[in-house]
């Protein structure tokens, strides 16, 4: 990435992180306000308020949505801080989990389930966090473009024979899996993914039998 692009990404990250703080403050005020209503309901006599149960139900719904909003802002904040240090040490398990949360809406729009398979141990490498997330997202998008509705995409980080890999595996509901695999490396986005992987010092490959895009990464990148 050139200096100007780095500055742009850093600027974008800084502003986004600041906004997540603001949203978080809004959520905190809504949480305490609905909590106060719950407190008042709890000390109100049953007979004095005939709609007590309906209010409780609605307050529970608000509470659930606050939690949801909080999870979203937490992930967005983490994402916004990705360009703070580059290269930086990252755990591929955590990156995969975070990517699942960030990309879940794109998968949901296609009725596709997105999951992260967790490696037993930490899989730590020194890399460019933003570019790594881009590579994962590009892989997910490539599969989303080809997969049919109700399929499944699973991100599998792993370390084998001193190789660091994130497998982007898919399961489709149609028997055309192999056809999809064959069309992956000829699609327009593949070239872009390969460029991203070159920047990361790695490669992108496909494994037709395992139905996976394999992202091979070096354990450390210096610049």
């Amino acid at each position: 990435m050139n200096k100007c692009a780095e500055k742009e990404v850093a600027f974008f990250g800084k502003i986004t992180a600041g906004i997540t703080h603001e949203i978080n403050n809004v959520l905190a005020i809504i949480k305490e306000s609905s909590g106060l209503l719950e407190d008042i309901l709890a000390i109100t006599e049953e007979d004095a308020f005939p709609h007590k149960d309906r209010f409780k139900k609605i307050l529970n719904r608000i509470s659930g949505q606050i939690q949801r909003g909080n999870d979203i802002t937490t992930n967005l904040n983490r994402f916004a801080h990705s360009p703070d240090y580059s290269p930086a040490s990252v755990d591929l398990n955590e990156v995969a989990e975070q990517m699942v949360l960030l990309a879940s809406r794109f998968a949901r729009l296609k009725n596709v389930i997105l999951k992260a398979g967790h490696h037993d141990e930490s899989v730590i490498i020194k890399t460019h966090p933003v570019a790594l997330q881009m590579a994962l997202f590009e892989s997910i998008e490539i599969i989303l473009d080809l997969i049919t509705s109700r399929g499944k995409i699973i991100l599998f980080p792993r370390k084998t024979d001193n190789q660091y890999v994130v497998g982007v595996h898919f399961e489709d509901t149609t028997p055309d899996d192999i056809v999809i695999m064959q069309s992956i490396s000829s699609c327009d986005r593949w070239e872009s993914l390969e460029k991203t992987m070159v920047y990361l010092g790695g490669t992108a490959e496909t494994d037709d039998s395992a139905l996976e895009i394999l992202l091979y990464l070096p354990n450390s990148i210096d610049k």
């Binding site: 403050n25 909590g35 407190d39 000390i43």
Partner: peptide
């Protein structure tokens, strides 16, 4: 410094 947050949380603590 978030006045509404401070006011609401303090009211909740007062009820306790």
């Amino acid at each position: 410094d978030e006045k509404e947050f401070a006011d609401t949380l303090s009211e909740r603590l007062r009820t306790r």
